[in-house]
Nucleic acid binder design. Structure first.
Lengths: 107, 107
DNA sequence: TGCGGTGCCTACCTCCAGGTAAGAAACATT
DNA sequence: AATGTTTCTTACCTGGAGGTAGGCACCGCA
C-alpha cells in the first residue's frame, strides 16, 4: 500500500515541482512578493536570466494561475506581473527554501 | 542595490535548489522522514527511479551532508540511509511543497 | 532620419539530467 | 553449477531546459 503516490497526476511534490521547479520561477515569485513589477524591472533584478526565458517563465506562471498579467496599451508598452492568491500560497515554499539555503551558505 | 543576491555562491534559493532541486531528491527526503531505509526499500517505494539515478542522488545527498549512509559488511550487503540534522532541516521545504501541490491537485 | 526604450517572438544550438542496458562482487540456496 | 539477492558501476543515448542572436512594432525625441 502506497500512502504517497509518485506519478505526476497525483503526487503533490511532483505537481509542485512541475509548477515552480524550474530554474527561475522561485526567484520570480520571490521578487514579486512585495508587489507587482514590470517585465523590465524583473529583468533588471535578475540580470542573468535571458529575455526569452523570462517571458517564457512568466507566461508559464500566468498559465498556471500563479501570476496575473496587466498589460497597458501605452507607447512604449507597459506590462506588470502580480502574484495571484495561488501565487501567494507558494510563498511558504520560497520562505523555507530561503531558510534552508541560508543555513547551508553559512556552513 | 540588490538585497537578493542571485549567484549560486550567495543566493539562498539557488543554494537550496542546488542541494535538493533535482527530480528525485525531495521525494527521497520525504520517504526518509520516518526513519532510515535501505537502498532496495527506497527503490521499491519509488519504482520509477532508475537504479543508477537512485544511487547517484543518494550519493549526492550524502556528500551534501543531508543523509548518512550506514553500510553493513554482510552478505548480501546491506546499506541504510538516514536523514542528518541538516536533512531534517529540509523537511519544511517538503512540507510546503506537499501543501502547495495538494492545493493545486484539488483545483 | 536615425536612435532608443519596451515587450515579445523565432530559429538555432548546447549541455546535462536522467533514462536504458549490462555487468561485477560475494555469498546462499537449490 | 547454476541461479538469486543486493549494492553499485560503467558505457551509451536522448529529450528538453535554457542559452544566444536577431528581428518586429510602436512611438518620442534629438
Amino acid at each position: 500500500m502506497n500512502t504517497i503516490p509518485r506519478d505526476t497526476a497525483h503526487c503533490p511534490v511532483r505537481k509542485a515541482m512541475n509548477l515552480i521547479g524550474s530554474k527561475w520561477k522561485v526567484l520570480l515569485l520571490e521578487n514579486l512578493r512585495d508587489g507587482r513589477k514590470r517585465d523590465g524591472e524583473l529583468k533588471r533584478l535578475l540580470p542573468d536570466i535571458s529575455e526569452k526565458v523570462l517571458i517564457q517563465e512568466l507566461k508559464d506562471l500566468v498559465a498556471s494561475g500563479l501570476l496575473t498579467k496587466h498589460a497597458y496599451p501605452e507607447i512604449p508598452p507597459r506590462v506588470e506581473y502580480e502574484l495571484t492568491d495561488s501565487g501567494q500560497q507558494a510563498l511558504p515554499i520560497v520562505d523555507s527554501l530561503v531558510a534552508f539555503g541560508k543555513q547551508h551558505l553559512a556552513a
